Computed example of a mutant assay.
Amino acid sequence: MIRNHRREVVAAYLFILPFVLSYGVLFFWPTLQMIYLSFTDAPLIGPGQWIGLENYIEMFDDRRFWTAVRNTSYFVALTVIPNTLIGLAIAMMVSRLKGWQQSVILAMFFLPYILPVSVVYRIWNWMFNVQFGIMQYPLTWIFGEPTPVFRVQWMFMPTVAFVTIWWTCGFNILLFLAGLRSIPSDIYEAAALDNANRWTIFRRITWPLIWPVTALVLTIQLILQLKIFDQVYLFVQGGRPDPSMVMVQYIYNMAFQRNEGGYAAAIAVALFAIVIVFSVLQFQLLRSRGEK
Rank of each mutant, 00 (worst) to 15 (best):
I220G: 02
A255S: 13
G24F: 00
L234D: 05
I205Q: 03
L78F: 11
E58H: 12
Y23W: 08
A192P: 02
V76N: 00
Q282E: 06
G87I: 04
I183Y: 00
G262H: 10
N197W: 11
A266F: 10
P116K: 09
G48Y: 10
N83V: 13
I81E: 02
L44Y: 13
I183K: 00
Q49E: 15
I86Q: 03
Q249G: 00
F28Y: 11
A42I: 11
F75Q: 04
S244I: 12
L97V: 12
L21T: 09
I228Q: 02
T164Y: 12
N172W: 01
G144D: 00
Q221Y: 08
L37G: 08
K98C: 10
A77K: 05
E54C: 12
A270T: 09
W166H: 05
Y252M: 07
R287G: 10
L85Q: 09
L174R: 12
E260I: 13
Y74V: 07
Y188K: 01
A270L: 02
L271H: 04
L26N: 10
L21V: 02
Q231N: 04
Y263C: 02
Y74T: 10
C169W: 13
P212K: 03
I205A: 06
G239S: 10
F28A: 13
M247R: 08
G239K: 06
I276R: 07
I223M: 01
D194F: 03
F110D: 06
L226H: 01
L180E: 05
Q282N: 00
I123S: 07
Q153D: 14
F202M: 13
M135T: 11
S244T: 14
V76D: 05
I2L: 12
G179N: 01
T79P: 00
V20H: 03
T84L: 04
W207A: 15
Q102P: 08
I90K: 12
A12P: 09
L32F: 15
L17F: 06
W166S: 06
A91P: 08
V117W: 14
Q257T: 12
A273Y: 07
M92V: 11
V275E: 04
K98V: 14
M34F: 14
Y263D: 00
V275R: 07
F143H: 08
A264G: 06
M245V: 11
Y113Q: 04
A270S: 10
I16F: 08
Q101V: 15
W29F: 13
K292P: 02
A190D: 09
K227M: 02
L218F: 05
